[in-house]
Amino acid sequence: MLSKIKTAVNQLQRKFINHQLRSRLKNHGMTVISANCVGAFILHDLGEPFNSPFVNLYLSPKNFIRYLQHIDFYQQQSLEFTASEKSYPVGKLADIEIHFMHYHNAQEAKEKWLTRSARINPDNLFIMMTDKDGAIGIAYDDLVAFDQLPFKNKVVFTHKPYPELRSAFYIKGFELQNQVGDLFAFSDWNGRKYYDQFDYVTWFNQT
């Protein structure tokens, strides 16, 4: 019962928070490329369209970084689907595996991928990743590789500080874990989510 009350309170307060966030946002129609669902949740809160195929899916950090290192090449590859024991479609772009966790079938996943790929705006591009990867979290070498990517607007959310990495942003609340948890979850009773620790509206507005 208490959890239901907390959820209801948070959802009510979230509507007010989202209204404030949207009123501050000046840069619209940005393309957010995110390794997991965090980017889509943020865009949904802001009432922004999905101008990227990276929605409701997941890539391992290594695959995500490889994609970003050769983004033009991978966007020209045909998305194919392979047999999988997963309950959702698993696609491949050349040698990169993409998990479409929230899609019913391969046809739906491919249609959304193609439609949203056509909306990518390289002049209004923002990159997001987290240090979440399986049970042990991301390897430090992958954090370094991400930090070295030649994109102006990129951030990786981490469970502990990495002051030596310019793109790392420490999210408080997961210090006893090996990685961040679900950043789109409510962190308290005030309608705020874990990713709200990062001022993404100011980040989007800076271009």
Rank of each mutant, 00 (worst) to 15 (best):
P61Q: 03
A109R: 01
V32W: 08
M101Q: 12
N56W: 08
I33T: 06
N63G: 09
Y58V: 13
N56Y: 05
K112H: 15
G47M: 02
S60W: 12
A109G: 01
N56H: 10
T82K: 15
A94N: 14
G29W: 13
C37S: 00
I42P: 00
H70R: 13
E111Y: 00
N63Q: 10
S87M: 09
L21G: 02
H44L: 03
A83D: 14
K92G: 06
I71T: 10
N105M: 09
F41S: 10
W113H: 07
C37I: 08
N36D: 07
H70I: 02
E85G: 13
F54D: 02
F73D: 07
R24P: 00
H104Q: 13
L25F: 07
Q77E: 15
I98C: 02
R22N: 12
I71S: 12
E97S: 11
S60P: 09
I17C: 00
H44F: 04
N27D: 01
E85R: 15
E85K: 15
F73Y: 15
H28P: 04
E80S: 14
N105R: 10
K26T: 11
F73T: 10
A35Y: 04
D72L: 00
I42L: 06
L43W: 01
A94S: 11
G39E: 03
E85M: 05
R14N: 04
S84Q: 00
P53F: 06
S23D: 14
K110S: 14
I42K: 06
A83C: 14
R14Y: 02
E108F: 02
M101K: 12
A40C: 08
D45H: 12
S23R: 13
S34D: 07
F64A: 05
K92Y: 09
L93E: 11
L43C: 00
V90K: 07
H99D: 11
T31K: 10
S52V: 03
Y103T: 09
F41E: 09
A35C: 12
N105I: 08
L25Y: 01
E111P: 02
H70T: 14
S34M: 08
G47C: 01
A109L: 07
L79E: 02
H44Y: 06
I96Q: 02
S84G: 05
S84W: 07
I42V: 13
H99C: 06
H28I: 09
F64G: 04
F16L: 07
Q76D: 14
F81Q: 04
Y74C: 05
T82R: 15
A94H: 15
D45K: 11
S87F: 07
Y88R: 12
P53N: 05
F41I: 02
L59G: 04
N36V: 10
D72F: 02
R24G: 01
N56F: 05
N51D: 11
F73V: 13
Q107A: 11
S84C: 01
S23G: 03
V90N: 04
I98E: 01
R24F: 05
K26F: 10
P89A: 08
F100R: 04
H19K: 15
A35G: 13
L68R: 01
V90I: 12
N18L: 03
N56D: 06
N105F: 01
A83E: 14
I71N: 13
F73R: 14
I33E: 01
V32Q: 00
Q75I: 07
H102A: 04
V32L: 03
K15P: 08
I71V: 07
Y88M: 06
H102W: 03
I71C: 12
D95Q: 10
L68G: 00
G91T: 06
S87I: 11
P89E: 09
I33N: 03
H44P: 05
